[in-house]
């Protein structure tokens, strides 16, 4: 412990450590403890019961919510990956002026710094029954009746997810691509590979960690979401987050806590697979 007095690092890292301890570790531990508690309509009753989990894990509602959530996560992941990779590829290898590159990059980044809820709401006048898309299609006489599945549907939910989170794919993949030695790509082309072969056999493997980081963000954000699903499905669809949120609204904290712990374990399990592909510290 001699180092404590001599190493200023301990002092410098204290604020961060305190925040993590007080607002991350303690709350998660609280959830874990409370998930074993009993409750009635008025209060929480300290106890050690498994009923919250039992109820959760045997209910059809949970199963459906998980399937729905996996569906959202997978669809959003696949679309943002394809889109994010292509856009990053364009930014990294087609734009040669560094200034233009930064400007385009910033253009992609700025919406991330604005309100998610506003960004979701702003789809409503476009997608609604009498929204812009439906009226335009009707005026062009491409459809007779408004398309109903544009808003308040799985389509709307996934669209909003892609809109909100595509950036989380673009940035890390772009970051990985900018470190690729351009000679490698030329060598690949010189050796007779086609452009597509070069992309899939040279660029993709070298962007592996960027792809993994982007995937981690997108998957965890979608898995834990409740507000997007609620707003964009108009309450018609229930993801895991929506279930937890409903239980919170009913003040059934132990049930919500059990749901949160199961969600946490699920997300950690998914992440443990993704984290095999990367060494975070090397990425920065």
């Amino acid at each position: 412990m001699r180092s404590l007095a001599h190493n200023p690092s301990y002092l410098q890292v204290t604020p961060l450590a305190l925040v993590i301890l007080l607002f991350l570790l303690f709350p998660v531990l609280t959830i874990l403890v409370v998930s074993f508690w009993d409750f009635n309509a008025y209060q929480l009753i300290p106890d050690f019961i498994f009923e919250n989990y039992q109820f959760l894990l045997t209910s059809d509602v949970t199963l459906k919510a998980y399937l729905k959530t996996f569906f959202y996560a997978f669809t959003t992941w696949a679309i943002t990956l394809g889109l994010g990779f292509t856009l990053a590829y364009y930014l990294a290898f087609y734009i040669r002026s560094p200034l233009l590159q930064s400007v385009l990059f910033v253009l992609c980044t700025v919406p991330f710094l604005t309100s998610n809820i506003i960004r979701m709401i702003s789809w409503m006048p476009l997608l609604g029954r009498n929204g812009m898309i439906n009226s335009a299609l009707q005026q062009l006489e491409l459809i007779d009746a408004p398309i109903e599945w544009l808003l308040y549907s799985d389509f709307a939910v996934v669209l909003a997810f892609v809109h909100l989170y595509a950036l989380f794919m673009v940035v890390p993949i772009f970051n990985s691509m900018m470190r690729i030695d351009r000679n490698l790509m030329e060598a690949s082309m010189d050796a007779g590979a086609s452009a597509l072969q070069t992309v899939f056999q040279v660029v993709v493997p070298l962007c592996k960690s960027g792809i993994a980081i982007g995937s981690i963000f997108v998957v965890t954000l979608v898995m834990g979401d409740f507000i997007t699903v609620r707003l964009m499905s108009g309450g018609l669809s229930a993801s895991v987050g929506v279930l937890i949120h409903n239980e919170i609204s009913l003040l059934q904290y132990p049930a919500a806590a059990a749901g949160a712990i199961v969600l946490l374990l699920t997300v950690l399990l998914m992440l443990s697979i993704l984290f095999r592909f990367i060494n975070i510290k090397k990425e920065l």
Partner: peptide, 20 residues
């Protein structure tokens, strides 16, 4: 732990701090 803080679903933090 800081990374966990980044990727933990927000609703967990919210619920945890709320109950705490």
């Amino acid at each position: 732990l800081t990374l966990v803080s980044l990727i933990l679903p927000s609703i967990l933090i919210s619920l945890g701090i709320g109950i705490m």
